[in-house]
Design a protein around this nucleic acid. Structure first.
Lengths: 360, 360
DNA sequence: GTGAAAGCGCTAACAC
DNA sequence: GTGTTAGCGCTTTCAC
């Protein structure tokens, strides 16, 4: 079949006129500009070596027909898409949205499209998105894994898909990654609670399968041990990093015989749940319970009292990860970049001596 | 070139063994299973008419090679991808994340992929995402437009891309859409403020180009007029639907000669900014200023006082929109589905008579 | 039931 | 500079 005997284009170009009604292809543009498809391709891809006259005609024709090159055909031919994927476990968590903004901004500058995928902390959904990444031959992935162990990044690595891990560090894979020093951040938070006079500090951490959970819990223990406090298993809860998990963990802590006088909560959504529980239990912060949570967010200064948090440089994590992605190559060895969190002390954790010790 | 003289596959299959190291194609699977590519395709697409024996061999081979069909090639051939796009103006706004969750859940059931795009209320970014939708020949779009007028959905419509508008209603296009009754919701909120004894009710709305801004402002005016209040232009601000805009509008309202005694704020991020401003100005809610905001979110019950809001059924909007998208066809006429918002009265707007009228 | 082969829209050799 | 042409990997007639 030759271009000129194709009747496809009669259809794709509307009934009577030259108005682009269907989908214009490169062939339509070529015919409209009276050049070859190669020339069209060259003009539209900025390849040099086309006369100004013809280039102008091509651009006009493309404009007139509302031509948008077909991404699939292009990707198929080039064996490479320009799309990046960001896979995060919770799109409603401000930490991850800020992180995504960081990726986005780099992607735009680098001329990459970014699509966002929400794994919802679910391995199956994550796997299905990883399949898409492979199927669409995407140009790169930034991922906060749903699990350090089971997240099967292996297929990506095997196929040489540039991949950067953020926030959570997948076990055993030699990948570029950008994380924060969770352990120190947590230790600093708990040390601060100790300094505020808290004695029974509870920790609500996340699921075992996620590195940040474990590291933040380790930091909590470090601080207790460093100050000669016992590490009481009854004061530790593993929740799911979601609001309801934080709520239930908090209730369970206070419904036990010996309630805590402080809460260290390992992420933002769980802090929302915890605060809800404390309201219901009619417990005042910081008088009855002091509180420090991981991750800052827009609303943490709107509560009464304002929340003390371990703030992560979320936007920066995303930005750095995307830069790493943009410059990734088999040549250079995998890098792990560790950024530092910052303890932001506000009213929820500062207790005057006279106020404390209400409960033994 | 025939299949068997292709040396591409030698490369794509690793150095020595059958281990899938590069990217396996349908040809690899066909060879491995000793069938034709047509048969592989039939098996993997569930087309009937393949013997159990061969089907089994194909599945085994695909499994063994870690074969993932190439989305571009498939889309190119089928002239249709299965991907849906959701384009929203602010990914950090809980309203939109909830809405996206609604879309996601339907997409999964309907076997569509969903990618998320953040237009950031920016027409240029929105346009660039619309280009992608066209370039990738996506199967459908749910969009909350950045502007009713200028959002150029026309290319989508011309090309017959199934499109559903949510939250904001694009002017003049005959599209399926799912919105809430903003005007009534706003009127109800303002009526409630009036009933609480507020006299100088200010409104912080969004940009002119967005329908929700105008509708919520109209509702505000409706309520004032209905109760014989003057509509004072000095009490109306147009901000940008973002936190800083809410902050600045609030400061400007209170730095004017005659400050309001109540604030009606047209979305959630601006409410964050407003609350921040009120804190700085040392104004107490609801004593000095009563407050009602559009959109509920996880933190609205964590502030002191809790926030009175006009809650939208965000998840439901997304769900309905996606159902509309799934069942869209040229055959049926465009539908507009209007859902109802709910006024949730909390402490930020309820003022005891004795407390009010501090300022004339 | 099964395979051969055409061709989706594009880019990149390769010819001229 | 410009055009011709061979496929990228897949689905889908069309023959058998």
């Amino acid at each position: 079949m030759r271009f000129d005997d194709s009747n496809r284009n009669a259809m794709s170009r509307g009934r009577r006129s030259d108005m682009p009604t269907g989908v214009a292809t490169i062939v339509d543009v070529a015919r409209e500009a009276d050049v070859s498809t190669a020339t069209v391709s060259r003009v539209l891809n900025g390849t040099s070596g086309v006369s100004a006259d013809r280039a102008g005609r091509v651009r006009d024709a493309a404009e007139r027909l509302g031509y948008v090159p077909c991404g699939s055909a292009r990707a198929l031919r080039r064996q490479q898409a320009t799309v990046w994927a960001a896979i995060v476990p919770d799109i409603a968590n401000p930490f991850f949205t800020a992180l995504v903004r960081g990726i986005e901004d780099v992607a735009r500058v680098r001329n990459h499209r970014l699509v966002l995928c929400n794994s919802d902390e679910d391995l199956e959904r994550e796997a299905s998105y990883l399949d898409i990444v492979i199927a669409e031959r995407m140009a790169g992935v930034v991922i906060a894994v749903a699990s350090n162990r089971d997240s099967s990044l292996a297929p990506l690595v095997e196929r040489g898909v540039p991949t950067v891990a953020v926030d959570r560090r997948p076990a055993g894979s030699r990948l570029d990654s950008v994380v924060v020093d969770n352990r120190s951040g947590a230790a600093e938070a708990v040390t601060h609670l100790i300094a505020s006079g808290c004695r029974r500090i509870a920790c609500i951490s996340g699921p075992r399968r996620v590195s940040t959970s474990t590291e933040r819990l380790d930091g909590y223990r470090d601080a207790l041990v460093a100050h000669g406090f016992p590490v009481d298993r009854a004061l530790v809860r593993r929740a799911d990093f979601k609001e309801d998990g934080g709520y239930r963990a908090t209730r369970s802590l206070f419904e036990s015989g010996a309630p805590p006088d402080a809460l260290f909560i390992a992420n933002n959504p769980m802090a929302v749940g915890a605060l809800r529980a404390l309201r219901e239990l009619d417990l005042a912060v910081p008088r009855d319970v002091a509180l420090v949570a991981f991750d800052d967010s827009p609303w943490t200064t709107l509560t009464t009292p304002e929340l003390t948090v371990v703030a992560q440089p979320a936007y920066e994590i995303g930005r750095v990860a995307a830069e790493l992605l943009a410059t990734s190559s088999d040549a250079r060895p995998a890098r792990t970049i560790v950024l530092s969190p910052t303890l932001v002390v506000r009213a929820s954790s500062t207790r005057t001596p006279v106020e404390s010790r209400r409960r033994a």
